[in-house]
Amino acid sequence: MIAWLMMASWSPYIVGAGIGVLTWLTFLLSDRPLGCSTAYAKTAGMVESAISRKNTEAMPYYRKVPPAIDWQWMIIIGILIGAFLSASLSGSFTVLVVPPVFAAVFGTDPGVRLLTALLGGILMGMGARWAGGCTSGHGISGTLQLSLASWVAAGCFFIGGILVAGLMYGFAFL
């Protein structure tokens, strides 16, 4: 058991099946689909609320998605801890700023990578809320419920992602 937890990686099918079982539990015990992007909107709302509580509470979006530390917000904190445990147990925890794949094409300047990450994050945060979910909320939890919107969203995530990744790195499959 311990040896298994200390392995650097597991089969993607085992990991996927594990996430599938996890979704059973979130539906059964919490009456919720597993999702990640709502927590970011809540975080933005909490920061805005700290600056001006009145203005933030009056915003229609935050009445729909109340900015508070709750189940959804804790999911993100949990992911951080869980990934840290997994990486630490296998000895693969490594502090890095510029991922090697990025550095090979765009160089090792941390500023370039961090600016790219910030811009990509802004687009992603906006797109996730625009579409009503992310790779977990739509891509896994919505598709497994056979939601039409989620299958379309997941397709669009990959169409957009494949196009832009191809523009950045060249279309490897051509």
């Binding site: 990509g120 687009l123 625009w130 579409a131 995530f157 832009v164 950045m168």
Partner: peptide, 12 residues
């Protein structure tokens, strides 16, 4: 929204 997300997915 999905296409905006996808673009961000690749850039981030």
């Amino acid at each position: 929204g999905g296409l905006i997300f996808g673009a961000g997915f690749a850039i981030l």
